[in-house]
Amino acid sequence: MILDHGAPIYEDLFGISWLDFNLSNVMMVLVTSLIVFIIAVIGSRKLQRKPSGFQNFMEWIVDFVRGMVSSTMDWKTGKQFLPLGLTLLFYIFIGNLLGIMFMVVYDGDLWWKSPTADPSITLTLAVMVVALTHYYGVKVKGGGGYLKDYFQPVPLLFPLKIIEEFANTLTLGMRLYGNIFAGEVLLTLLVGLMASGFFGFIGGIVPTLAWQGFKLFIGAIQAFIFVMLTMVYMSHKVNSDH
């Protein structure tokens, strides 16, 4: 057994049979949200017209996300998605980072890990994003324009368009989950190797460090891809020409 730890599952809240919780996920979601909130609030304190220090960094991020938005759609319609993109970027990046530094196993259960290394979390984000694209599609183009898009450019593509929606959701969530989870599995293996003995430690430390660095890179890239794809899907729904 490679992964010899389980998850702190809490089953059947209020006696509802399908309402199960992974308490680790709940905790990590809250921790990630708290960290993101603190960073964002610290970054936007004492805002000045002439920026300095942390404000520069935050404005760089804002400009970065704005670049993503305006590369996929008209800035006039895209402006409203800037907060969403920023929050997603921060949330996913911080979430990815949390699993790199360390993992905490307590009483045989894995407590501290990336919240994004769980399909429930990533698929929730993906479903939320896709639902938002449909919502804004209807809001921007109206019900008729929104429905008409399913039969464009030829009505024959209608089934494919329906499949596309589900495929988009699934791939968006699973891509993030797969990348982060695979990274954590490998990290767990390397740490296990290091813990196995002196030679294991010697042999394992360099790959562990390298993999942690690479995971940092993957975490940043995956956050970027997630936000980018969010904006691309959004632009498919709100742009009238594509």
Partner: peptide
């Protein structure tokens, strides 16, 4: 390493993210 899709987690994640989005 998880119990499949946990609806509890999903609800928590959704609500937390929406609150985070609003506050932030």
């Amino acid at each position: 390493a998880s119990d499949g899709l946990l609806f509890g987690d999903m609800i928590i994640q959704l609500i937390t993210f929406i609150i985070l989005l609003a506050l932030i």
